[in-house]
């Protein structure tokens, strides 16, 4: 993989991180880019920025249903989900819930 790719990979991940930080004020935010694992499989765009797993812990999720939590994140990442992101694994917890 070329340097250019690595740079754009970082920037998409950083963009996701920044947007989630600004909008949802997480106390924990783990973002894993596992696009490499999916490279070459059917319908994978092969951009290196297509598959992400996110674990986010934030007080904004307190008292909210799973669907509402995902909607909050989906809304923040609306542009990315319509473009770059092909698949997003998401775990969203309130601070007082067990998360690993």
């Amino acid at each position: 993989m070329s340097n250019t790719n690595n740079m754009s990979q970082n920037s998409v991940e950083e963009q996701i991180r920044r947007k989630l930080m600004v909008n949802l004020h997480p106390i924990r935010l783990d973002i894993v880019n596992d696009s490499e694992r999916h490279a070459g499989h059917r319908s994978s765009p092969g951009t290196g920025n297509s598959h992400f797993q996110i674990l986010i812990v934030s007080p904004v999720f307190e008292g909210k249903s799973r669907v509402d939590r995902h909607r909050l994140v989906n809304d923040v990442l609306k542009d990315e989900l319509a473009g770059t992101i092909h698949a997003l694994g998401l775990k969203a917890y309130a601070p007082d819930e067990p998360h690993s």
């Binding site: 799973r66 669907v67 995902h70 694994g89 998401l90 775990k91």
Partner: peptide, 9 residues
């Protein structure tokens, strides 16, 4: 009900 993550959880 949800997507894959929610249904699995």
């Amino acid at each position: 009900v949800g997507g894959c993550d929610i249904v699995r959880e």
